[in-house]
């Protein structure tokens, strides 16, 4: 019994980090058809900035806010100055974001050194608690809570606000929204910045578990890409489903067949796409 509880909770905590990370990726794709190869770089920067701020100020919240705001600004700048010029040109967009991936990786290596580091947990979330008679780390429970909170917030934002309605309309028919006199470029910049901020949030939340080191950007980006593809590109609901699938399959896979854990992320994706070529919640 405790095997099931622990592995389910582990799967859920990983899934929620992945969800926060991939929600931004999928929204940006849905609205602008940008496959952002540098999404993992935003995650890495978020984690590193939080790490430095927490070390300097001692406050986890300060680290979290600074990291998200800084990365959002960076995202806004990148969209405004670079990606905007390449609107709807998928191949040069890939080239650009791959270039940014290299640049940010090198800058991070230069600024923070190459040794693997952990983002410190907030002190009040240290230690373990008891769930259904099983001892379980508090911080992981907090991550599950945060992930669900972000999910609800995103749902409210998209479904219940004017901005959300515009974004959804922009996903369906950009020209029509433009014709209505809505400032589409502003929405694009805002959404790209928001997506970058979510990636940074993923870095701050996941940092205490996954650590920050050169190559972490690539590692989590791969997972995020799997999540959004499995879920269906452009769909937040899909990203949520995809995160749950990847998080749980990876954890139970590692528990049951550790020697095959190289395949536990990739093979389910191949199977899902073979059956549903546009992902679980994707539009055809």
């Amino acid at each position: 019994m405790s095997f099931w509880i622990v592995n389910t909770l582990n799967g859920l905590s990983l899934a929620m980090v992945l969800f926060v990370l991939s929600a931004g990726l999928t929204l940006v794709f849905g609205l602008m058809q940008i496959i952002n190869m540098a999404h993992g770089s935003f995650y890495l920067l978020g984690g590193y900035i939080a790490l430095s701020v927490i070390q300097a100020s001692g406050s986890f919240i300060a680290g979290l806010v600074t990291a998200c705001v800084a990365v959002m600004l960076l995202g806004a700048g990148i969209q405004r100055l670079m990606l905007q010029r390449l609107h709807k040109q998928e191949l040069p967009q890939s080239l650009l974001t791959l270039g940014l991936l290299f640049i940010i990786a090198d800058v991070a290596f230069w600024l923070w050194g190459g040794n693997a580091q952990l983002v410190p947990k907030p002190a009040m979330l240290e230690g373990a608690m008891t769930i259904l008679g099983v001892g379980y780390p508090v911080y992981r429970v907090a991550i599950i809570g945060m992930g669900l909170f972000v999910a609800v917030l995103l749902w409210l934002l998209l479904e219940r606000t004017r901005v959300g309605a515009l974004v959804r309309a922009g996903m369906d028919d950009e020209e029509m929204v433009r014709a209505m006199g809505i400032n589409i470029p502003l929405i694009f910049t805002g959404m790209f910045a928001f997506g970058a901020g979510l990636a940074a949030l993923g870095g701050v939340l996941g940092g205490p578990l996954l650590g920050m080191f050169p190559g972490a950007d690539f590692e989590v980006a791969l997972l995020a890409f799997v999540v959004v593809t499995v879920g269906g590109l452009g769909s937040v609901r899909g990203a949520f489903l995809g995160s749950l699938l990847v998080g749980l399959v990876d954890n139970f896979g590692a528990a049951w067949f550790p020697q095959f854990s190289l395949f536990t992320v990739i093979v389910p994706m191949v199977i899902v796409l073979a059956i549903r070529p546009t992902g679980l919640a994707g539009r055809a």
Partner: peptide, 15 residues
């Protein structure tokens, strides 16, 4: 023998 880059060793430790 888990994979290099396993994001969550919780499941390894748990078993």
């Amino acid at each position: 023998l888990p994979r290099l880059g396993t994001p969550d060793y919780g499941s390894v430790v748990g078993q």
